[in-house]
Amino acid sequence: MTHRQAPGSQGPAGDGEERQGRRRRAGTEPTQARSALGVRFALATVALVVFAAATVIFAVLATTSNPGGAMSSGEYGALAALCGVVAVTAVVDLTVLRHRRK
Rank of each mutant, 00 (worst) to 15 (best):
M1F: 10
T2E: 12
H3P: 04
H3R: 08
Q5Y: 07
A6T: 01
G8R: 03
G8K: 09
S9L: 07
Q10W: 02
Q10V: 12
G11R: 02
P12N: 06
A13N: 08
D15N: 07
D15I: 01
E18K: 09
R19D: 13
R19T: 15
R19I: 13
Q20W: 10
G21W: 02
G21I: 05
R22P: 04
R22F: 09
R23H: 06
R23N: 10
R24Y: 05
R25I: 04
R25F: 08
A26N: 06
G27P: 07
G27D: 14
T28H: 11
E29W: 04
E29I: 01
T31P: 10
T31N: 13
T31S: 13
T31W: 09
A36K: 12
G38S: 14
V39C: 15
V39M: 15
V39A: 15
R40N: 09
R40I: 03
F41I: 02
L43E: 10
A44W: 01
T45G: 06
T45E: 02
V49S: 03
V50A: 00
V50Y: 00
A52Q: 07
A52N: 08
A54S: 09
A54N: 13
T55G: 09
V56L: 04
V56R: 04
V56E: 00
I57V: 15
F58K: 08
A59L: 06
A59C: 09
N66L: 14
P67I: 15
G68T: 12
M71W: 14
S72V: 07
G74D: 03
G74W: 09
Y76F: 15
Y76V: 14
G77P: 10
G77L: 06
A78P: 06
A78H: 06
L79N: 11
A80C: 11
A81S: 10
L82S: 03
L82A: 06
G84Y: 11
G84Q: 10
V85F: 10
A87M: 04
A87D: 02
A87P: 01
V88M: 01
V88P: 00
A90R: 00
V91L: 11
D93L: 11
L94K: 01
T95D: 09
V96T: 11
V96E: 02
L97T: 05
L97E: 04
R98L: 14
H99D: 10
K102E: 05
